Simulated assay, not measured.
Amino acid sequence: MSDLENALNGKSVAILVANGFEESHMTSLHKALVLTGANVKIVSPEKGVVNSWHGNGWGHFFPANAHLATSMSHHFDAVVIPGGSRHVNRLISDPQTARFMRGFMEDNKPVALVEDAPKILAEAGLLEARTVFAEEDIQDILSEKGATAADAEIHVDDMLVTSKFADEALVEKFADCILSYEPEAWEAA
């Protein structure tokens, strides 16, 4: 990880969470991204604070830096969504999630999804013809929405990184995507 220290200076990364997100995912991703020098913001449909899930019960509250309803993809260079079925289902039920994520996907900006988070993009119709890591329990949903499940526990499909774990390997691949993203080339195409 020391190779990435300050590598993302000047980059803005959103961590999209709703009540019930997996606390260990968010905290490890947040810490690792801060170490890269990225400006990390917690974006949430909840106002003020968002409650995590830790182990078998509710975890800590975290301050939400930005409200989902007023956040736009062009405010950020990249977005990451931790796992956690409670928050995944909450995000799917909020139409602002699809709007926010559509901006990232249409601009081909870096997106990282952990565990069951690909379900969010699948339900929004944003994974057609994409290959992603998928937990076994959501593979049928992804297939119905036109996505293919990858064999590996971490998979990169252009600027989309999907992983079973919120770990250093995910952050490294995600950072590589952020560093290689060229908005001018994408807009000119």
Results as ranks from 00 to 15, higher is better:
L8Y: 04
A129K: 15
A129T: 15
S163I: 04
E182D: 05
L33Y: 02
G10Y: 10
C177D: 11
L170D: 14
D3N: 13
T131V: 09
D77Q: 15
A188I: 11
E153K: 07
P95D: 09
L29W: 06
H67M: 08
S180H: 15
F133C: 01
A175P: 10
E153W: 05
E187L: 14
I42H: 06
E106P: 07
I141T: 14
M72W: 15
A152G: 14
G10A: 11
W53M: 09
D116A: 01
L33S: 05
K164Q: 01
L33I: 08
E23N: 11
I120G: 00
A147K: 08
P118Q: 07
H60K: 06
E106V: 07
H75M: 10
I120N: 00
D167A: 10
G10P: 12
S143F: 09
A149S: 15
V79M: 07
H60M: 08
R102D: 07
A14H: 00
K41P: 11
S180F: 08
M159C: 05
F133D: 02
S93V: 10
K145L: 12
N56W: 02
K109C: 08
P82W: 01
P95W: 14
S28M: 02
N51R: 15
H60V: 07
I178G: 04
V111M: 14
M159D: 05
W186L: 14
M26F: 04
E106C: 09
L29E: 10
K11F: 09
A150G: 04
M101L: 09
V156F: 02
W186Q: 14
E5V: 03
V13S: 12
T70E: 04
G57S: 09
F165N: 11
G48V: 07
G146W: 09
D116H: 00
A14G: 00
K173N: 04
P95E: 14
M105W: 03
N65P: 03
K109H: 13
M159H: 08
A166Y: 04
D116G: 00
A189W: 15
D77H: 15
S71K: 01
G57T: 02
A14Q: 00
A78G: 05
P45W: 09
L113Y: 06
T70A: 02
P45K: 10
H74P: 05
Q139T: 12
T131D: 06
R102M: 06
L8T: 10
V171F: 00
V79P: 07
P95C: 06
N65R: 05
T162K: 00
L33A: 05
P95L: 11
V80Y: 05
K47L: 02
G103W: 03
I120S: 00
I15R: 01
L4M: 05
T162W: 01
